[in-house]
Design a protein around this nucleic acid. Structure first.
Lengths: 223, 223
DNA sequence: TTGTCAATTGTCAGTCGCTGTCATTAGCCT
DNA sequence: AGGCTAATGACAGCGACTGACAATTGACAA
C-alpha cells in the first residue's frame, strides 16, 4: 500500500479554451433551449412542434434530437441545473444538522444562488414562466414528478450517508425524503397558482410550508 | 329550509338490464384491457404496439382510441378502481380519527377488499405484474405519479372537510396528504423491488413504513 | 315486423414525435 | 495540405394519435 504524500495535480485547468467546436455546440444547445422555451410558453407545449423550433434556430430536426432525447427533455434542461444546485448545497450542510433541517436549509440556500446561475442560459423571467407551464401541462407535470422521484433516491443516499446508514436496511432516509419532497411539491404547486411569481415568494412559501409539516402530522389539529 | 326526514330513494334500480349494446361495449373494453395488460407484461410496454392489441381483440385501432384516450390510459384502467376504493374507504373513517390515522386505516382496509374487486376484470396475478411494470417503465411511472398527485388533491379536500377547514386557507391538509402519499409511494417502490409479490406483503410494508414517518422526521435518529 | 334514428365501429388519410442510415460538412491535428 | 473524426443534414420509415366520413347495428316506435 502506498501512502499518497503530495498527490500531483491531475489536471490543472482541464479546459482553458474549449475549442471552437465545443463553443459552437454550446451555442446551438442554448439557442435551442431558449427558442423552445420561448415558443412553449408563448403558444403552449403541445401546440409547438419540434419543426417550428428547429426552423427558428435553423438546424435540422435530427440535430434537435441529438441534443435532447425528446421534446420534453428540452423543457427540463434548466431545471436540471437547479437540481444539481440543491444536491451540492445539501452536501455542504454540517453533519450535526438533523436530516430534515439539512434538507430545509439546503433548499433555502439553493434558492439564494439559483437566479444568477439560470441567467447564464435564459432570462429568469422565462424560467419562471416555464415552471408554471410544467405545472399546468399534464404531460410535463408527469415527467417532472418522475424526475423528482429520481432525485429523491439521490437525496436519500446522501442523507443515509450523513447518518451512517444503509438505505436498504433503514427505511427512514427514503421516508424522510419522501415526506420532505411531498411538501416541496405542494409548495411549487401553490406558488404556481398564486399571483406572486417572484423568487422571494417561493422562498417564503418554502419556509412556511416546511414549518407546517410537524403540525400536519400531529394527532390533533384543533386546539 | 326543509329538513330531510325520510328522503325518497331517487332511483330504485336505475339499470336492471343494461341492454345488449351496453353489455357489448363492456365486453370489448374488458377484452382490450385484459389483452393489453397481458401483452404489455409479457413483451414490455413500449415493445407492444396498439395494432398488436387490436388485432388480438379484432377491433379497429380507432376503436381502441375511442375507449382509451391513449395507450397509457389502458394500463391504468384497473388502477383507477383501486383508487376509488381508497377514497370510499376514507370517507367511511370515523370523524374523530386523526387525519394521518384516517388515511392509514383507509389504505389498510382498502387492501383487504381490493382483491375481489379486481378479479372481476382481470386475474389478480396480472394486476400485480402490471404494478411492477408501471414502476419499472419510465413513461408509465411518470403518468402514475401524475395520477397520484391528482388524487392527492381529492384526498386533501376530504381531510379538510373532516376537520372543517378550507384547503386554500390552511395548508395542513395538503401537507399531511403529501407526506402520507410520499410514504405510500416509497412503499410501492420497495414492494416492487422485493421478492414477495403478494397482497399481504404490501399490506405489511404499508404498516411498517407508515410507522416510520414520525421517527424519520425526528431531529435525532441515533439513539 | 319493419322502418327510422342514433350510437358504435371501420376505413382512410394525415400530423407529429422519434429513430436508423448514410452522405456531407467542418473543426482538429500532424 | 491532407487525413481523421465529430457534428450535421437529408431521407425514409415506424408508431401513437386525430379528424372526417361511410357502414353497421342495437333501440324503439309505428
Amino acid at each position: 500500500m502506498t501512502v499518497p504524500v503530495s498527490a500531483p495535480v491531475p489536471a490543472p485547468v482541464p479546459a482553458p479554451v474549449p475549442g471552437l467546436r465545443e463553443r459552437k455546440k454550446q451555442r446551438t444547445r442554448d439557442a435551442l433551449i431558449r427558442v423552445a422555451l420561448e415558443l412553449f410558453t408563448r403558444h403552449g407545449y403541445e401546440a409547438t412542434t419540434v419543426d417550428e423550433i428547429v426552423d427558428a434556430v435553423e438546424v435540422s430536426q435530427r440535430t434537435f434530437f441529438r441534443y435532447f432525447s425528446s421534446k420534453e427533455e428540452a423543457v427540463f434542461a434548466v431545471q436540471q441545473m437547479t437540481e444539481e444546485r440543491f444536491v451540492h448545497a445539501l452536501g455542504q450542510r454540517p453533519p450535526d444538522e438533523a436530516p430534515i433541517d439539512a434538507m430545509r436549509n439546503a433548499v433555502l440556500s439553493a434558492w439564494d444562488t439559483i437566479g444568477e446561475a439560470i441567467e447564464e442560459v435564459i432570462p429568469v423571467d422565462l424560467h419562471l414562466r416555464t415552471y408554471r407551464m410544467i405545472e399546468s401541462t399534464p404531460a410535463l407535470l408527469a415527467v417532472h414528478l418522475r424526475r423528482s422521484t429520481e432525485m429523491e433516491e439521490t437525496i436519500a443516499r446522501i442523507i443515509a450517508a450523513r447518518e451512517g446508514l444503509d438505505v436498504d436496511e433503514d427505511p427512514r432516509p427514503r421516508i424522510a425524503v419522501a415526506a420532505f419532497s411531498g411538501v416541496m411539491r405542494v409548495t411549487g404547486q401553490m406558488w404556481g397558482r398564486g399571483t406572486d411569481g417572484s423568487l422571494e415568494a417561493i422562498r417564503a412559501l418554502t419556509e412556511q410550508y416546511l414549518d407546517q409539516l410537524g403540525p400536519a402530522l400531529a394527532p390533533r389539529w384543533r386546539d
